[in-house]
Computed example of a mutant assay.
Amino acid sequence: MLIATILALALGTYAFRLSGVVLGERLTLPDRATRLLPVAATALLAALAATAALTEAGAFAGFARPAGVLVGAALAWWRAPFAAVVVAAAATTALLRLLGIP
């Protein structure tokens, strides 16, 4: 049963992605929708990041995780190497939790 579910989801994902390639030329969107699509993708990604950073099991995750995310975001803004961003964000969160800040 589990394999069938995984295969069905994989097939659905593949079909959904393939439909964009197949229908891309035949489907025309209004100019306003075409202009808003990149903004919508950015807003969706930002909402996903905010939800992951601020909540855990439907409740506030505490202050340590958002602080780590802010440190990582600041380092990414300053174009630090990816490994440094990840290590600094994790270290900030771990240090704050070690100090008793949830």
Results as ranks from 00 to 15, higher is better:
T42C: 01
P38Y: 04
A49Q: 03
A50I: 11
A33L: 15
A50R: 04
G58D: 11
G58Y: 09
T55L: 14
A41D: 06
L29F: 15
V39H: 08
L44I: 14
A52F: 13
G58E: 11
A43D: 04
A40W: 07
A50W: 12
L54N: 00
A40T: 10
T34A: 15
V39E: 02
T55K: 09
A40K: 00
T51F: 10
A43E: 06
T34Q: 14
L45H: 02
A46E: 06
T55D: 02
L45Y: 08
A33S: 12
D31S: 11
T55F: 14
A33W: 13
A53N: 05
R32T: 13
A33N: 03
E56F: 13
R35P: 00
A41F: 13
A57I: 04
L54H: 00
T42Y: 05
A41E: 11
G58L: 08
L54E: 01
E56I: 08
L29T: 09
E56S: 14
A33H: 02
A40H: 02
T51R: 14
P30H: 08
A50F: 14
L36W: 12
G58H: 06
L48Y: 07
L36N: 02
P30V: 05
L36E: 12
T42A: 10
A52I: 08
A47N: 03
A53W: 00
A41R: 09
A46T: 11
L45E: 04
A52H: 08
